[in-house]
């Protein structure tokens, strides 16, 4: 179980602002931006000892935590490499929920492609068999 450490929300009235000049905070410092779908979980955070720590300068990808697919290391590396490419391709765009959702959505599409080309397989020991990316098919039934 991973505890997600949310930073405390900004107080409504900042009492210390009068005494000391308010520190120049980076935007997105107080909130953890995320785009979470079943197979792709994106956070503006880094991982420390298995915990997510909010970090506006880094993006963390978590792939399929409830094991709907069987992930073999080469396939997982492909997804992570694709993630790096997508993040680099969006350099200069604003860091907000929308951009993260675009990245996450593209990654889900990529995972679906991997599934349809047969590189990725459904895990029969998953807690529930939802086949959430389409029913499994064999070449004969196509």
């Amino acid at each position: 179980m991973v505890a997600i450490q949310d930073a405390s929300p900004a107080p409504m009235v900042d009492a210390s602002a009068a005494a000391t000049p308010a520190p120049q905070r980076a935007a997105g410092d107080s909130t953890l931006l995320k785009s979470t779908t079943r197979h792709v979980r994106l956070f503006t955070a880094r991982v420390e000892n298995g915990d997510l720590v909010p970090d506006p300068s880094q993006l963390t990808l978590d792939v399929d935590p409830d094991n709907e697919f069987l992930w073999e290391p080469p396939v997982l590396a492909k997804v992570q490499q694709r993630f790096g490419e997508l993040v680099n391709a969006r350099a200069g765009e604003p860091l907000n929920d929308y951009t993260l959702r675009r990245i996450g959505s593209d990654l889900e599409g990529f995972i679906r492609q991997l599934l349809q080309t047969g590189e990725l397989r459904y895990n029969p020991d998953c807690r529930v068999l939802n086949y959430s990316m389409g029913l499994p098919r064999t070449p004969e039934t196509l």
Binding site: M1, D64, P65, R90, E93, L95, C126
Partner: peptide, 25 residues
């Protein structure tokens, strides 16, 4: 035991521009 989640983390730095959220109360 099948119910435990498996985390496959991958952290990358990014060049996205931090912006203030539109809805801030």
């Amino acid at each position: 035991g099948n119910l435990l989640p498996t985390h496959r983390y991958c952290t990358v730095p990014h060049q996205l521009v931090p912006t203030e959220p539109i809805v801030n109360g």
